[in-house]
């Protein structure tokens, strides 16, 4: 393990490639219209998300955080400065966010649907709980659906770029769906009407991916 860390650090230093990179957006900027506008998607992906990655690479360089995975960083969040918390969260959260959105309609798996029913009653109640969590988050942050340490689905919200994987999170779990409620996620189309954005986003949720993440989370 120790050798591997040293080896990774050496390789990183020798090749000088950035540790964290941005995956391609799985659809075009305009794919989620009219629910999420093309300009918002472009700025969100190329400026906000890319900015977190670039700042994260700079922040970890030459520090004890260098070479650690995002999940390793999150589990030891208290040991690192805020610049790592903010940018590591910003990278992970946006990466997850792009993956749980899609222009293609899909349905939750039977397993996910059954877990949603036992935790919240039905899918509409889950949406209502998520929308409330997002609407009540004062300032910038996220609404989450996660699998908690007991394997149960739970809705929560976090401030800024925190997430349920972080050791500092109030409600911990493995996120399977995250909704960005920073104003930059919706202001160009919805302005002050965060509720309208939250109501609209359910039209472009990638339930196939949320279901895949749910199955993965149960294995852990």
């Amino acid at each position: 393990m120790r050798f591997w860390i040293l080896f990774s650090a050496l390789v990183t230093a020798m090749t000088a490639t950035a540790q964290f990179t941005q995956a391609p957006l799985p659809y075009s900027y305009s794919a989620l219209e009219p629910y999420i506008d093309s300009q918002t998607m472009e700025i969100h992906y190329t400026k906000h998300h890319a900015g977190y990655i670039s700042n994260l690479n700079k922040a970890v360089k030459g520090t004890p955080a260098e070479g650690l995975s995002l999940t390793a960083l999150f589990s030891r969040m208290g040991e690192f400065p805020d610049v790592i918390r903010n940018n590591a969260g910003g990278h992970y959260n946006h990466d997850l966010f792009w993956s749980v959105l899609s222009p293609e309609k899909s349905d939750p798996s039977p397993e996910l649907l059954s877990a949603v029913s036992s935790a919240f009653g039905n899918l509409d109640s889950l949406k209502k709980r998520m929308n409330e969590a997002g609407a009540k988050r004062f300032g910038s942050g996220w609404a989450w659906l996660s699998v908690d340490p007991n394997g149960k689905l739970v809705v929560s919200s976090t401030p800024n770029q925190d997430n349920p994987l972080m050791s500092v999170a109030e409600v911990k779990g493995i996120p399977v769906l995250g909704i960005d409620v920073w104003e930059h996620a919706y202001y160009l189309r919805y302005q002050n009407k965060r509720g309208d954005y939250l109501a609209a986003i359910w039209n472009v949720i990638n339930w196939k991916e949320v279901s895949r993440r749910y199955a993965e989370a149960l294995k852990k």
Binding site: I43, K47, G51, S140, E183, Y187, Q191, N192
Partner: peptide, 12 residues
């Protein structure tokens, strides 16, 4: 510096 103060005019 809430985003609503500048997002329409300055974006990010």
């Amino acid at each position: 510096v809430w985003e609503h103060a500048y997002y329409v005019d300055f974006r990010n």
